[in-house]
Design a protein around this nucleic acid. Structure first.
Lengths: 288, 288
DNA sequence: GCCAATATGGAATACACATTCTATCCACTC
DNA sequence: GAGTGGATAGAATGTGTATTCCATATTGGC
């Protein structure tokens, strides 16, 4: 019972599994390829994005070769066909992106082997924190810290999943001896709180998907009373985005439908730290 | 000579031609979309890479919606269909590519001279999370999850800096429909709470340096009443260590005398996740 | 609380696509 | 200079895909 492709064994080519390997493989095999295939090799290395995103027909046209040649090229490299090779070119696009979050999510769902939950979570948190550090505009961070440092008082508002972050802010800001309070709807007194908002206060609002309507309501009321609002949220579609001066974004790690707050904690810690620095600077200046 | 689509003019929606515009458009129209379409909007912003590279069917599965909804979403935004919208998501991939190298270089430079607070914090959090993943005994994690999964009720106790973690546990465990309460000394009723502890309850105690005496007291009382106690703390010298069955350790990142809770959040998330799994497994077994 | 209008999910459909096949061409050998 | 092996292009094929359609569910208005 002979295997189908047994005879084309001459080079039982193992298809590479990363783009870097593929690049090397192409370079190595380049000399031994037929002239048409050589053309394609050159084109592939010169226009990896085209290969990644366009159809065989389009690539063929741009490279000035027939589609079937592209398929043969891929097969010569050990892939099933063009599509199979294209996978690696696409992988490269995603890997080089500043934000890996998607690929992670995919991986985690797909191959649960080897890495246990904690490992997965650690990896996901890594990425989320990297993204946060890479994508947070430092001016926004600075502005937020400045506002918190010179506020007459700070009103934190958060519900459900955001509450732990609010709780950390409360702890951190109180330690900095900032007059801070948590508007947590304890005893249903949120509405009463609203009346005591002062225009020189700064509101610190934290809200993640699904955005609690209570939080939005409070922020609206604060805006109406001309309070400055510092917003921490996850996506630009968040209903709070528009109110923030500034709005800070943090997309946290997600594993098996459960979201962590590790990255959000980093942001909160950083904001507390920066606020502390502003305060010290302020005091220093006054003393001079 | 009327144009074909003249009549669907109500919103002669001009499809955006750059990803940035698309992001804005999604944010702007989000409020006016139907609930299913809102879900998709959120997913699209959260997983742009998935949209860019996967097929409708795959995206639909990952987003938990039918494929047709994705097409409708794209059309609502003014595109011909899903593929048309996908073009922009792919454009983003290639456009952001070259900037990546710059950013990397930038960051390496930054680390060399003066990484800002957020970078420092991110690096510190990285290490803390790595340590956590490496040093946490999986049996302890498993044991803790098992206890939480089969407890009659769960009493969480934490003070000050541990409170955010407790708050997250409360949220997570309540979402798993575990009968959980937070013993937070609200109204000074901690002592009263103690009397209502049940031997089949599990206590979840979180305490970091400097260890709040209240927490220790509550744990002592719980131990006396034969409750099982799951402890989350930072060092083995912690006064709580002895009470834990098991005790989980997490040493968090510290920058400029300020401690983050990123790693602790990871542990908490993991514990919630594992508890959830135990519950599902338990239910599965019962059904057999 | 009923009706209309709209949103939704799933199956049917039409389309686009990668791949395969075969006739032809070229190079190299004898 | 004829024959043979391999490479090539372009058309045919079949699979995978987006899209459309329709029956059902849901929402909002009166």
């Amino acid at each position: 019972m002979p295997t189908v492709k047994q005879m084309s064994s001459s080079q039982a080519a193992p298809p590479p599994d990363s783009f870097a390997d593929l690049e090397q493989l192409i370079a190595a095999r380049h000399a031994g390829l037929s002239s048409r295939l050589k053309d394609i090799a050159v084109f592939a290395l010169a226009h990896p994005n085209t290969i990644a995103l366009e159809t065989v027909a389009t690539v063929a046209e741009q490279a000035g070769v027939p589609p079937s040649a592209l398929v043969r090229f891929a097969q010569a490299l050990g892939f099933d066909g063009f599509s199979d090779m294209q996978r690696l070119f696409r992988l490269r696009l995603v890997e080089q992106m500043p934000s890996y979050t998607d690929r992670l999510a995919q991986r985690e769902q797909g191959e649960a082997e080897g890495a246990d939950t904690l490992d997965q979570l650690a990896a996901a948190a890594h990425r989320a924190i990297d993204d946060l550090a890479a994508e947070t505009p430092r001016e926004a961070l600075d502005e937020a810290a400045t506002r918190l440092a010179r506020a007459r008082g700070i009103d934190i508002v958060a519900q459900r999943r955001s509450l732990p972050i609010a709780s950390y802010f409360l702890y951190g800001l109180l330690n900095l001896e900032r007059p801070t309070r948590l508007l947590d709807n304890q005893g249903g007194m949120l509405a009463q709180y609203l009346r005591s908002l002062h225009p020189d206060d700064v509101m610190l609002a934290i809200s993640f998907k699904p955005y609690a309507p209570e939080t939005l309501e409070v922020v609206r009321a604060a805006a109406q009373r001309k309070l400055e609002v510092v917003v921490v949220t996850d996506l630009s579609v968040s209903p709070l985005t528009a109110f923030g001066k500034p709005t800070l974004f943090v997309r946290d790690a997600e594993v098996q439908q459960v979201r962590s707050l590790a990255a959000a904690m980093c942001l909160a810690t950083c904001l507390v730290l920066e606020t502390g620095r502003k305060l010290v600077q302020g005091r220093g200046r006054r003393k001079e």
